[in-house]
Nucleic acid binder design. Sequence first.
DNA 1: GATGCAGAGTTAATCGATTAACGAAATCTA
DNA 2: TAGATTTCGTTAATCGATTAACTCTGCATC
Lengths: 339, 339
Amino acid sequence: MVTKPPRLADVARAAGVSTATASMALNGTGGTRIGADTRERVRSAAAELGYRPNTVARGLRTRRTQMIGFVGDDVATTPFAGQMIRGAHDAARRAGFLLLMVDTSGDPAETGEAIAALQERQIDGILLATMYHQVIDVPKAIGPTPAVLLDSRSADGSVSSVVPDERGGTLGALAELAAAGHRRIGHVTTAEDVEARRIRLATWSEHVAAYGLDPGELLAETPQAKTQGGYETAMRLLSRPERPSAIFCFNDRMAMGVYRAAAALGLSIPGDLSVVSYDDQELIAPELAPGLTSAALPHYEMGSWAVKELLRKLDEPDAEPVQHLMPCPIARRGSVAPA
Amino acid sequence: MVTKPPRLADVARAAGVSTATASMALNGTGGTRIGADTRERVRSAAAELGYRPNTVARGLRTRRTQMIGFVGDDVATTPFAGQMIRGAHDAARRAGFLLLMVDTSGDPAETGEAIAALQERQIDGILLATMYHQVIDVPKAIGPTPAVLLDSRSADGSVSSVVPDERGGTLGALAELAAAGHRRIGHVTTAEDVEARRIRLATWSEHVAAYGLDPGELLAETPQAKTQGGYETAMRLLSRPERPSAIFCFNDRMAMGVYRAAAALGLSIPGDLSVVSYDDQELIAPELAPGLTSAALPHYEMGSWAVKELLRKLDEPDAEPVQHLMPCPIARRGSVAPA
DNA sequence: GATGCAGAGTTAATCGATTAACGAAATCTA
DNA sequence: TAGATTTCGTTAATCGATTAACTCTGCATC
């Protein structure tokens, strides 16, 4: 007893018009060609039958599928990804689009395959998301398909992209410390050569150098930006003769280690040591005691910006590509106190 | 100079055959009708032109889009979701399917809309994922579309589903403690009425009751399963006259609070107190000091199981629905020591 | 020498919409 | 009042595949 879903032809028959009229009535196209009463007849017939357009058929004719391809390099495994996807998803949905997802574990050949798989499905555009802020070459497989880079920039600037404003976020985090009177601000960071490290480090260096301090004496590195590395670097930094009164951490996971080091050394946070960080990870920053002041990575906003930019490109194919910096707002919590 | 991508007709012309022949040659259909040399000619013509089938056109004809709808209730915001999506994604991709995602923030009306949006796009089947283990009514909007529930069961068992084996995981976690000689095992849990709480609590109750202990004396609840709640419940439990030698936590976030409480009371883990937990969240369990022994929620496996089950349903529409329990393996770390 | 049949393709219908091109009645204009 | 517009539709082509129903050779069979 499974009756097939109604087609446009069924609606047209029920309303006593041709499929052309039915199509125009439902879509509001064709200008004044359809009378108000006819339009109403068609609409109610459609509602009556529970008509839902077959977008596959429509897509074949219009060459628009109302689907956006989302290619992530291993993106689904990182805790940030959720917000990025959600931002893209919400913006897409509001415009009547859905996200077709492919995860690629970063391998370029696989990325090419993923892009091809999406193109076979005639997606209207592609979002290329990376796990963390980096500079990449746009895969040639993309061809003429409209695309936007998410959390990465293209080396040649030929494609629109959005990345976090790392410099602004770093300055914001440091401003929290400066406002509390801190001058000797240490930095613990990773040795991994990523864009985020470079910018955060350079911005911090400038900042402390402006006070006439030597960044080299206030810096400690670890191979991996994890809790253990944060612990070790903080131990090194805090046992130097003139220890910093505050530490700016590369990310929240390292900050967790800094908290642990402070506890081990009998230093209280924020009484003896102020801490600011980057990422504002929801499972870490608010859960530490005291809560960690951190510059938030605006993943949700980047995701939705990317979709809006992509939709703009669909409307105006000849628009110039835009490289956007998304602000990183500071989440203030209890880890900063006057020096 | 943007040349349109080649169509099947272009391949056929290049190979000097009809589109029917080209189609059959490329797809290997039509039995013996296509000679080996012709097939080869068509194949190389296709490769030459870089032909990629238009799956929208194909889908219109075959009524198969090779796309699976993934509906999540707020799923993209939880840290688990990534693994669940990835598990589903990988299994789908291996079979030539892609995931079309919709996130719904849980509202039933919105879920209905999401399902309709997917059906308009003619997805071959639907995965309905929930943020955490629960029992739900299958939305009527699904209709005859093949569906599988992910991390939830249907009240009436009419649809296949997969959920974690909470009982097995709890027994496994408690077995770690039992093997280390613990008898007085406390439990800190949430007051939220969710399936996970119910099963973990009941299983733990049985376990301690079997030692002749009164569960009521070893239990503490908090309104929300977060760090703060874990801290408070542990403080209560550990300041009772006969304090437990070990605590089984509802989840890792609460365990974080338990660690903090132990530190506040001067109890060392695992020396004075052993701790086991549930969820094995990657940002918490391995990062605590000592590492937290925890029963892992098999999100990846559930995701891929769900897709395989869905594909089976596509092949055998009359197959009986299956309710699957996915084992929760124990991640052993340093938080357990002999009593 | 007619019949049957397997092999290798071709023709044309079809999936369910959108839309360019065309048409008849009603209204307006000079 | 004849011609020009407007109004409100319809007819049929089209998007790019898949596939049921044919066709045409050549060969074996009786």
